[in-house]
């Protein structure tokens, strides 16, 4: 006979778990793609700073990016390799972020009436909105400089240096870029530490401190470095 036992242990045990299907794997993908971005933005920032060297040096650099690796690679060959890589990383990064955010929202459907934060930082709490901000910005940014080559001041678009100066001569364009950089800075402040933690590289208190410091440094260097050019254009230091 079966005793009347109302105890059920649903949800039951899962069978045959696969590491590749776990939330942690999604996180590892985010971290890896995030680090690709970090590498990219560092190079990108270095390129932008060429603006301080003047019109010709900047355009030379932009041209050089396209001819790099010739004749082994075709014109813009390397650039396309990088672009494909970045697009793939973006798809992975955004898709994982979306999946994790959805999970998190179903993990607590009934919210607290009162909830205090003890240790989270502004940056850690704004990762999701910050990410969306960056994404939206990215679309505009590509329209602005890469795909659409939209010159908001109506000027010529065939000269990268001039297009840039025209853009940032508009105060509101500079503001948009600065806001985006603020978002990026915040994103990197938490993101860098988070990526290192996700990759399991923060096993000791010392390593954790280092990772947090790295977050600060990258956030300041990258967000600050990118902001210099628009600011100096607006201030008239960089001009046509």
């Amino acid at each position: 006979m079966t005793p009347v036992a109302t105890h059920t242990s649903a949800p039951t045990l899962v069978k045959g778990s696969r590491a590749a299907r776990s939330t942690i794997t999604l996180k590892i993908l985010m971290a890896a793609s995030g680090i690709v971005f970090i590498g990219f933005v560092l190079v990108h920032m270095y390129g932008n700073l060429k603006a301080f060297a003047g019109h010709d040096a900047f355009n030379e650099y932009a041209h050089h990016l396209r001819t790099f690796g010739e004749p082994i690679l075709p014109y813009e060959g390397l650039l396309w390799i990088v672009r494909v890589g970045l697009i793939a990383a973006l798809v992975v990064h955004v898709a994982s972020a979306y999946a994790l955010a959805r999970r998190a929202s179903t993990a607590r459907t009934q919210k607290y009436a009162v909830k205090k934060n003890r240790s989270s930082s502004l940056s850690s709490r704004t990762m999701r909105w910050g990410g969306v901000t960056i994404l939206v910005f990215l679309v505009w940014h590509l329209l602005n400089f890469t795909i659409g080559k939209i010159n908001p001041s109506g000027g010529a678009t065939n000269d990268p240096y001039n297009l840039m100066v025209d853009t940032f001569d508009l105060w509101w364009m500079t503001i948009i870029y600065l806001v985006a950089m603020l978002a990026l800075g915040l994103h990197l402040h938490h993101g860098t530490w988070s990526a290192l933690q996700t990759l399991g590289l923060t096993g000791t208190a010392a390593a954790r401190t280092r990772a947090k410091t790295a977050g600060w440094v990258l956030a300041v260097v990258i967000a600050g470095g990118f902001s210099l050019v628009p600011l100096f254009v607006l201030l008239g230091v960089i001009s046509k």
Binding site: M1, P3, V4, A5, T6, H7
Partner: peptide
């Protein structure tokens, strides 16, 4: 040969042999 136990959540009085 067994116990009578109460499921403290549902209140069911169960027989287990």
């Amino acid at each position: 040969r067994g116990i009578i136990a109460r499921d403290m959540v549902t209140g069911a009085v169960e027989t287990h042999t």
